[in-house]
Design a protein around this nucleic acid. Structure first.
Lengths: 258, 258
DNA sequence: CCCGGCCTTCCGCTGGGTGGGAGGAGCTCC
DNA sequence: GGAGCTCCTCCCACCCAGCGGAAGGCCGGG
C-alpha cells in the first residue's frame, strides 16, 4: 500500500483523458488491460476510471468485457464546430455533386500537415477509397490536399516539401516539381492527382472560399475520386466549382451569426 | 483558502465530465461562467478543468473566450459503435434511396422512449425536417419511431402509451388507436405518419432486421419524409425494403467479426 | 489439478486538487 | 472619468479523495 505516489506532471483529469486516448480508429474496442497499458496506468486505477467513464455514458461495456465509445461521446462529437458549421452546410452540396457524377465526393480541411476528411459521400458503385470521415491523409498526395497546401502559409509548405512521403510509385516526392504543381493549382484554380495516394484512382479538387474578416480565404477543399481509366475528370471541375461557391456562401453567412 | 471541501459523491473525474455535460445542442459554445454554473462548480475549479481539457484537445477556445468541442472529442465520437457499425454500412443504402426518390431519408435506432437519428440524407430540394443526426424524437409521432416501437419490449410500449405527447394537431395521442396502429405496422411491415410530428410532411418507414444470436431482430428503422401533398408514399415502401434488407445483411455480417 | 492471464476489490497513505479570495481587464452608465 | 459592474485569471494552504500494491476470484488450457 504505497499510497498516492502519483506520477508527477499527470493530473487526475489527464489520467481519465489518457484512458480515452487509448481508443483510436485502429482499436475502437479495448479490454481493461489493453487500456491500462496504453494509458500507462496501473490496472486498478484504469479499472476505476473506466467505471466512472462508463457510468457517465462516455464509454460502454460490451458483453465480452471490452469497452467502446458510448453515446455521450458521440453526442459531444456532433457538437464540434467542424461538424456543426462546415459539415452541416456542405453536405447538401456534396450530394448535388454526387448526384451529378455518381463518384465519391470529399470535403476536407487542413489540420497541420494533413488533410482532415470532414465529410464523404460514396455510393455502393463508387470506387473504393482509403479515406473515411475523420481520416488524415498527407497534403501532397491527394487532390483536396494539394488544394489546401496551395493556400497554406509558407512555413507549412516548406515543412511539407522537406519530407515528402512516397505513398505509391506515382506520388510526387520531388520538392521542385510539387512547388511547380502548387503554382499551377493557384493559377488554374483546381488540383489533380493521378494514382498518387492509391493505385487505380484519379482525383480533382477545388478550393472552398469563405469570407473571414473581410477577405476570402480557403476554408476547405472539395474533391472527387474516380477510377483511373476515366480521363475526362477536368470536365467535372465546373460542377465542383458551383458546389464550392454554394458552400462558401453558406459558411460566410453562418459565421456572421457568431 | 478553505481547501478541498469537495462535495461528497462527486469524484474528481466526474467534475471534468460535468464540464463536458454543460455542452449540448442548444448551447454548443459556452463561456467560463456559464460552464461553471451549469456544472455546479466554483469558477476557479471550472477554469482549471477547462484549461486541462483544452490542452488535451477535447475543447477549443475561441477568440472571444468561449469554449467549444474540439477535434479530439469529434474523433472519439466517430469511434462510437452507432457510427462505426451501423452508420457506415447503412449510408450507401440511404444514398440509393435518396437517389431514387430525392426525398429526405432517415436511419434511426431506439434509445429508451426516443428514436435516435443516426443518419440523415437530405438534398437542398428536400422538405425541411426537424430531425438532425443526433436528434431524439418521440417514438409515437414519427415513421421510424412507430416502426421501432412496434418491435420494442412490452414495458417500453406500455410506458409510451401512458404519456403520449401532442406534437401537432394530428399526433396520435389515443393509446387504443396507437396500439391498433402498431399491430397494423407489424402486420404489413411498414409505418406511416401524416403531419404527426410537423405539419406539411408525411413519412413512411420500414424496419431494418439483422441476425443477432440466431434470430432476426429489428436493429434500426429506415424512413423517408415527403411533402404532405404527395399521396403516393406507399409506392415507395418497396424501395425502402430493398435498402433495409441490404443494411440488415451488412450489419449481420459485420457483427460476426466481433 | 495447477498454472497463467485477466478482472475485481480492498485499504492506508499522501500529494495534488480544491475553492475562497485577491487582482485585473473590459464594459456601461451617469 | 470614475464608479460600479461582470467576467476572467491566478494564487496558495489545507486536507480528503484518488492512488496503487497486493490479494483473491474466475476462467480456460495443458
Amino acid at each position: 500500500m504505497a499510497g498516492g505516489s502519483t506520477t508527477p506532471g499527470r493530473s487526475v483529469t489527464s489520467r481519465a483523458l489518457a484512458v480515452l486516448d487509448a481508443f483510436d480508429s485502429n482499436s475502437p474496442r479495448l479490454s481493461l488491460s489493453e487500456i491500462a497499458e496504453r494509458a500507462g496506468l496501473p490496472l486498478s486505477t484504469a479499472h476505476r476510471l473506466l467505471g466512472e467513464l462508463t457510468d457517465w455514458g462516455g464509454l460502454e461495456r460490451r458483453a465480452d468485457g471490452r469497452y467502446e465509445i458510448g453515446r455521450k461521446l458521440w453526442d459531444l462529437g456532433l457538437l464540434a464546430p467542424v461538424q456543426l458549421e462546415l459539415r452541416q452546410v456542405a453536405t447538401p452540396f456534396l450530394l448535388d455533386v454526387h448526384t451529378a457524377t455518381r463518384d465519391t465526393v470529399h470535403l476536407a480541411v487542413r489540420e497541420g500537415r494533413s488533410a482532415l476528411y470532414v465529410e464523404r459521400i460514396s455510393g455502393r458503385e463508387s470506387v473504393p477509397v482509403v479515406s473515411q470521415v475523420g481520416s488524415r491523409l498527407p497534403l501532397h498526395a491527394t487532390g483536396v490536399g494539394k488544394v489546401l497546401l496551395a493556400s497554406a502559409p509558407d512555413d507549412v509548405v516548406e515543412g511539407m516539401l522537406r519530407g515528402l512521403t512516397r505513398e505509391t510509385r506515382h506520388t510526387v516526392v520531388d520538392p521542385a516539381r510539387l512547388r511547380r504543381e502548387l503554382t499551377e493549382v493557384r493559377r488554374r484554380g483546381y488540383a489533380r492527382t493521378a494514382e498518387e495516394m492509391s493505385l487505380g484512382t484519379l482525383s480533382v479538387a477545388v478550393p472552398v472560399r469563405a469570407e473571414r474578416g473581410g477577405a476570402a480565404v480557403v476554408v476547405a477543399a472539395l474533391g472527387i475520386v474516380v477510377p483511373s481509366h476515366r480521363r475526362d475528370v477536368a470536365r467535372l471541375v465546373p460542377v465542383l466549382e458551383v458546389a464550392a461557391r454554394g458552400i462558401g456562401r453558406q459558411v460566410s453567412r453562418v459565421q456572421h451569426f457568431h
